[in-house]
Simulated assay, not measured.
Amino acid sequence: MKVAVIGWELPPAFSGGLGIHTYNVFSIVGKIIPVDIYLPDMGYSFPQYPFNVRTVKIKSGIAGSVYSHVTNFIEAVNDYNDRVVENFRPEGVALIHCHDWITFRAGIEIKKRYRIPLVVTFHSTEFDRSAYFNPQESIMKVEAEGASEADAVITVSNLTRDIVAHNYHINPDKITTVYNGVKASAYTSGIKFRRERQVLYFGRITSQKGPKFFMEMGKKALEYENNIRFIMAGTGDMLDEMKAYAYNHGIQDKFYFPGFVDFQKAIEYYKKSSVFVIPSVSEPFGITVLESMVSGTPVVMSRTTGVGEALNNALKVDFWDTDVMSSYVVSVLNHRSLMETLSLYGKYEGMSFTWEKSAMKTLEVYRSVWKI
């Protein structure tokens, strides 16, 4: 009784939450049932995992051997799906599990060809990625077909479940929400840092994540308090625009843009910051929220951040309301009791989200498909 997982990224070759989810969930599931994970061969070597990695060579849409050298993403995705179908090994496979639209086409074809049940997970939707501005119809078509053809659908939040159910006309009873987790020990152990009057943004700098609202919030907060430092960590197509915003408003000395940061540096930023702000226009889950909370850093988050539906110890605001957002940030910085309360109770709450829970919930979905 083997599960064939069709994915796109896995540490050390990953760029976001999908890779983190794949590693953590299937490291646990793989100790219970055999798991094959199909991935694009981008020239990386993988350590010994509790699951079997099967790499598939992509021949179109790439110019090199790493993810950053993808020259035509759609072309590379289509070629990858074709190659997975060609190289798929059905022996002993009792279930296929696909992650996001980039793998759905292969999963649908394999299901039809070998009559194997299909589970798909939506880590995000095209509506999220486009921030509801001009979503690509071709991708929405793949997402709709994947949700329709699947025997069961998993979403990372009820927010995403409702988007899938409403926009793709899927019976909500077919959809199960499985929250992501966090490996708390990575953030609670190690070096302790002194908290600074520092406000952190950490994530891709794209319209979906609302970086402009972070900049607007920072500008307004500086009108109250001048001794605040803002860090916008990450890369994305709006990075230069955000730098220009800081320069044009004369606050460039208050904002720091370190670009991509590695795991250890990210932990340092979490531990040193006094407030973490996630102003996403549409965030299906938000693993960075949990990382911040278990680090003891208070969180100000948009109401359209999926994990917020399950949290009580974070300050929530509409992503566009930078007046309230800035007042929350200044209040946390200036009221020690508020900061300590959010830090302590947020840490306890964040630690309740574990990858073990995510893995067991995923296995429950498998069992419902297998009907055992």
Rank of each mutant, 00 (worst) to 15 (best):
K209S: 02
K254C: 07
S274K: 01
Y270F: 12
F127K: 03
F88C: 14
G250Y: 07
V5G: 01
S280D: 03
E268R: 03
Q252E: 13
M238H: 04
E75M: 15
A106S: 08
A184K: 12
V66W: 13
E283D: 12
G43M: 13
K31C: 02
I110R: 07
S331Y: 01
I37N: 00
F255Y: 07
F202H: 07
Y132Q: 15
K357H: 11
Y348F: 14
Y38H: 04
K243G: 14
P11I: 02
A106Y: 00
V317E: 10
V84W: 04
I267G: 04
S331M: 00
S60I: 15
N313G: 12
S124H: 09
V56H: 01
T155V: 06
K254Q: 06
I116Q: 04
E364I: 11
T177R: 06
F133S: 15
I205D: 02
V53G: 04
K31A: 05
R303W: 15
S68K: 02
K243N: 14
M339A: 14
Y256G: 05
I154L: 06
G30N: 00
E9C: 02
H249F: 09
S138Y: 12
V294C: 08
P211V: 02
V317I: 13
G107N: 04
N334Y: 11
F353H: 05
K347I: 10
D128K: 07
E145S: 14
S27T: 03
V324M: 15
R367A: 13
R303Q: 15
A4L: 08
M238T: 04
E75A: 15
T125I: 10
G218Y: 08
S302F: 06
A165V: 09
Y328C: 06
F257C: 00
F122V: 09
T160R: 06
N72A: 13
L342S: 03
P298Q: 05
T177E: 03
F353G: 04
Q198E: 14
R204S: 06
M339F: 12
T305H: 09
P47M: 08
V93I: 11
P117R: 09
L18T: 07
E364K: 13
E356Y: 11
G296D: 09
V332D: 01
E216W: 08
E196Q: 13
G16P: 02
W8I: 03
V182S: 02
S124A: 12
